[in-house]
Simulated scan of single mutants.
Amino acid sequence: MKKLISVFLLAFLAVSVFSQTATSVTNGSFLMPTTWDCMCIPTDGYIITINHDVTLDSDYMMSSGSITISSGASLVESGTGHGILFTGTAALNVQGTFTFSKLAMYGGTIANTGTMNGLDSLYLGVDFSNDGFVDAVEVSSSGNFFNNDTLFAVDYLSYMPFNNNHYAEIENFFINIGASNNGDLHLGDCYNNGHLWNQKLMIVSNDFTNAGRLDNDTLGAITIMQNCTNGDTVNNDARWTNNGAVTVYMNFQNLDSLLGDGTFCIGLNTANYGYMNGTYEFCDNSNPGTLNLNSGYIGSGITYCSTPCLSSIAETDLQPVLVFPNPASDYIHIVSVDMITDWALFDISGRVVMDCREYSDDFGIDISDLHAGLYYLRLETEDNSFMKSIIKE
């Protein structure tokens, strides 16, 4: 009996230890007991709630327990190069601001309705639904990523599906498994080696290669500002089905299969070494009525420039919204294809520093009173939203 009681006592003590709570009571260091109501330093297993501005000058790891950053509060790295690692059942819930160099989610759960920035490296080994603002240099994801608000990334390496439902801006995007876009997707260079499904607006400012499967829906619009290749040089099984609109401002070549019933508008040279079949409109502005080079198969259902394409594609504005000058010291100018209905300017913490209801396609914003640094300008039209990085000098 005594042995049984001892076992229960040990179990009770274990539960008590690993379910301890710590709630911030003042601004301060994570490693100072006076920051917390428990007068302790929270460790792995604690249920941690941050209601103030808390700094952390070290690496940190959790395998159980949780960290919740409340709205209006923050957890900010003090120093540089530190990281936070989550494994096991640990949970991170960002409602306020999370600013750290490195975050690795090897396990547990993550939710964001606030702001996550300052990230040099973000590794996601778990599913992530972003309902806030994320700004990272490098993102590597082996979990499903659902972007329901705003994502900025320099490099994004996808090992599991990436789903954009609002606004994402990625400089270098490598798709290894799959990606879907039902919002505004702005890319620098993009290489698709998986399955890319576009349902709305996708703009690639540099080169684009489809070496996998690409489906562009009826309402999908893809704009590629430089060169475009549809082809898998290893397996020769790339397939692009275009039922919407595709615009390529420079050269286009098809090595594998090009299908669908949409439209292609090409600015410079075109070449087909593969299989082109369907009922789509294909218009080469440098050589209307045909392709510059064909050594493959072209089906009889394809038409050439039967409806006007861009008469001078090089003279057409590549962006639906222009913001200039950038960098700027006192004034920025906005020119838009569609009427801007609202705009807001955010600092790097996600705080709104300026906003206005607008109804204009050509206007200016005075930023002379802002501190120098990086800002984000969100512009809203009736149908779309755009996010631009602004540097205030």
Rank of each mutant, 00 (worst) to 15 (best):
V321E: 03
L13Y: 04
H52I: 05
I334Q: 06
A271H: 09
L258I: 03
G81E: 08
S389Y: 08
C283L: 06
D347H: 12
L214A: 00
L75G: 03
Q226I: 01
D347G: 13
D347F: 01
S63H: 14
D261K: 07
I302W: 04
T89W: 05
T55G: 09
R213E: 11
D53K: 11
S78H: 01
N164G: 02
N230T: 07
I203N: 03
A104K: 04
S121A: 08
F8P: 14
Q253P: 03
C38L: 07
M387E: 12
S389W: 08
S349R: 12
G364E: 12
F30I: 06
T26N: 14
D284E: 07
D57A: 14
N292R: 10
A211W: 01
T21L: 05
D59F: 11
T87M: 04
S74Y: 01
D59S: 14
Q226K: 15
G301C: 07
F98S: 07
S385Y: 07
A14P: 05
D189H: 07
N287R: 01
T150A: 13
Y375E: 14
C38H: 03
I203T: 11
V126C: 08
V76Y: 10
N130E: 13
N192K: 05
A179Y: 04
Y46T: 07
D155I: 15
Y123L: 14
Y46D: 13
P320D: 15
D261C: 10
L268A: 11
V54W: 04
Y375R: 09
T35E: 05
I177E: 15
F162N: 07
Y106L: 15
P308R: 12
T223G: 10
L345P: 04
D131F: 13
G296F: 05
D284H: 03
L56A: 13
S29M: 11
N236A: 15
C40H: 09
A211S: 13
N165Q: 15
A14H: 04
G278C: 00
F145H: 08
I50M: 04
K388L: 11
F282D: 01
T23V: 15
T303C: 11
N176V: 07
S58F: 14
S58I: 04
L13C: 14
L185S: 04
V134T: 03
M354Q: 15
Q226N: 15
N176R: 03
D237E: 10
P42K: 01
T87S: 11
S140N: 02
W240G: 00
F264A: 01
V323Y: 10
G83L: 01
W197K: 11
S78V: 05
